[in-house]
Simulated scan of single mutants.
Amino acid sequence: MSQYPDSPLCSRLGASVPIFGFSHSLDVVVAISRAGGIGVWGATRNTPAEIESGLARLATETAGAPFAVDLVLPKDMPARQDRSAIEEAIPTEHRAFVDGLRRKYQVPDDGLPGVRSRFVRSEEMATDQLHAVLDSEVPLVAMGVGTPPAAVTAAKERGKRIISLVGAPKHAQRAIDAGADILVAQGYDAGAHTGEIGTFSLVPQIVELAGEIPVIAAGGVATGRHILAAFALGAQAVWMGTAWLFTTEHQIDPIIAAKLVRAGSGDTVRSRADSGKTLRQIKSAWTEEWSAAAAPTPLGMPYQDILVGDLLGSVERNRIEPLMKSEAGQSVGYFSGQTTVPELMADLATQTSTATGALRNRLGHND
């Protein structure tokens, strides 16, 4: 007997475990898929060439198990990948503030870009990234921000299923209208880009709206009890991201790993300081500086990316401890040390089975 509730969605996709595991690490994605789940590679900050090679590797190393790729395709981005045009539009006040942070924390100006500034998020880059995905063997394409109908149609013509992450019923309806095959109801609790509605409130609303379209629950999922609760809310699987930061496969910097271990659920904050869109991360000097009264209001995407990207890249390369940080959801408080992907997957299976048994006992006592 399975240790998890029945998931028609995962059975249809060829997965034995109803866990979609999101990570920027290819090693983590491979390990999740090989352990029975569905690894999801966050590739939105990778070049088309990197996406092509990364997906080729996943197709080989997942050994026939399902896997997915996640892109962020927001509306109203610049048409071209023209960094000089973006820089010209950045206000002097914002430049001065970032220069002040560089001096205050003694961040070297090494002349190199960071992950957010190695290219401009634009329609041109999104098209090139999507083409790399369409030409690959990846069976599932997740869209983290926005579900462009043209992109959905193009992917479906290549035989790929579309997963759309949504944070509100209005977003879900747009995704449904665009042709999404699967919805991820991502609550306020989640790491990275989140909306205003908590997971427990959001998931049932999306399930009701979706009808026959399967829904995955995301945001705050950390234990077997959360997995069981997600199914009780009507989801057919869960989406987890923060958990994998604690795995050895991720190979995270020890400074950031220590901060994650110390963090509780109340030690995360949503900030627009990284991308211009709300992004949940652990609290740090970075988020404190941008929330101070004297700080300018963060710019919109992709202007904020270019404003801060080089600085953040140097922070990581030179390991400037106060400013080092990580995206993380409120589930961060459930993890206290390193593990491996197979160990974590096994623990989640045991926890879900235990939680299911305990619930059955309670229901039996109530009868």
Rank of each mutant, 00 (worst) to 15 (best):
G300I: 03
K259G: 03
F20C: 14
I182H: 10
A151D: 10
D82T: 03
A293L: 09
A328G: 00
G167A: 13
Y188N: 11
A355W: 08
R80W: 06
G276Q: 09
T194S: 09
V133G: 06
R280A: 06
P66L: 10
D367P: 03
G146Y: 05
G211Q: 11
P78R: 04
D135C: 06
R262G: 00
T223Q: 04
V238C: 04
E157R: 15
G187C: 05
T194Y: 01
R118W: 10
S11L: 13
R12A: 15
G100Q: 04
R319G: 00
M345I: 15
M143E: 10
P169I: 07
W239S: 03
Q106D: 11
L311C: 00
R280G: 05
L130D: 06
Q205C: 02
S326V: 02
E61T: 01
H193A: 10
A294D: 04
P302C: 14
L245I: 01
T356Q: 15
V341L: 05
I19T: 01
G114T: 09
I255K: 09
L73Q: 13
T147L: 11
G37N: 08
V17F: 13
I90C: 04
F22A: 15
G159H: 12
R80I: 11
A237D: 14
P139F: 12
D189T: 12
E88D: 14
R34D: 10
M240V: 10
T268V: 13
V28W: 07
D310P: 02
D181H: 12
D274T: 11
G266W: 00
A85G: 02
A229E: 01
M240T: 07
R80K: 13
G39S: 13
P113S: 06
V98M: 05
S84D: 15
G333S: 08
K170Y: 00
R12T: 11
A180G: 13
A49F: 03
V115G: 03
A237Y: 10
D274C: 04
D70Q: 09
G191M: 02
A96D: 12
P254N: 05
I90L: 06
A49Q: 13
G42M: 11
R34K: 14
F231D: 07
M240W: 02
P148A: 14
G114Q: 08
A168H: 15
S331W: 02
Q281A: 14
T223G: 08
I320W: 06
I206K: 05
G191L: 12
A172W: 03
A175I: 06
S23R: 08
V120E: 07
A229L: 05
G198D: 13
I176T: 11
L363K: 03
A294C: 02
W239G: 07
T62W: 02
G144P: 09
T242P: 04
V261G: 00
V141S: 12
S284D: 01
F67W: 11
S53C: 08
G14W: 07
T248L: 07
T340V: 14
Y4A: 04
M77S: 12
V184K: 08
A150C: 02
K160I: 13
P5H: 11
P18Q: 04
A43E: 07
